[in-house]
């Protein structure tokens, strides 16, 4: 009877482990990326360029847009433009935002591209899709909980939860408690 119980425990742990592999990789990669959000943008690559251009005189800010885009060889789809103040023009192009100083001709470009792969894993990890993904992610969390519990009882004997496993599990529980005590 005891052997059968452990066998089912191992089967659940093994098969859940297989099922959870993909999602665990996604959450782990995104976790590493998002953990360092203060140092970098984990979802977007932002490139900033500064150039100067001789702007055509006598034209309104809106009328300057085509010549500026042409002059910069910017072929992205034009979205809109806006003047935050009388001397500045912001031009929005697909993947690029240009800030033009109408007095000096100084142009700051902010080119934004998604980080391939990372954008998608962060999209899922941070639950941007909401809707059905929320339920799926909840199921994954429950599966992880089951993996953790069944993992405790894989091995019998001294290397299991009654021996070495108990010490290591206690260490794993104490470590986060220590950090809460240290920084909490």
């Amino acid at each position: 009877m005891r052997i059968r119980w452990r066998k089912w425990n191992t089967v659940i742990h093994r098969d859940l482990g297989y099922i959870c592999f993909g999602l665990t990789v996604i959450y782990a990669i995104s976790g590493l990326a998002v953990n360092h959000i203060a140092d970098w943008n984990p979802s977007y690559r932002i490139e900033r360029l500064t150039t100067t251009m001789q702007l055509q005189e006598g034209l309104s800010a809106a009328d300057l847009v085509p010549s500026i885009l042409q002059g910069l060889d910017e072929t992205g789809k034009y979205k809109n433009s806006f003047q935050p103040d009388p001397n500045t023009l912001k031009i929005f192009v697909e993947g690029n935002t240009l800030t033009v100083n109408l007095k000096t001709g100084l142009i700051d470009q902010e080119k934004v591209t998604k980080r391939p792969g990372l954008f998608e894993v962060n999209f899922l990890h941070l639950n941007h899709p909401k809707k059905m993904w929320t339920i799926f992610a909840d199921l994954y969390a429950i599966a992880l909980l089951l993996l953790a519990i069944t993992g405790l009882f894989i091995l019998p004997g001294k290397k299991g939860i009654k021996g070495r496993g108990a010490w290591l599990t206690t260490l794993g529980v104490l470590l986060p408690i220590f950090f809460v005590w240290l920084y909490g």
């Binding site: 977007y44 929005f92 697909e94 935002t97 941070l126 639950n127």
Partner: peptide
Amino acid sequence: RPYEKIQVKVTDGEIVFPMSASGH
């Protein structure tokens, strides 16, 4: 009104605006 804008703040994670929203 010209030269004017307002900030819309949302709770982190509850709503996530994409960078591609600019200009729309």
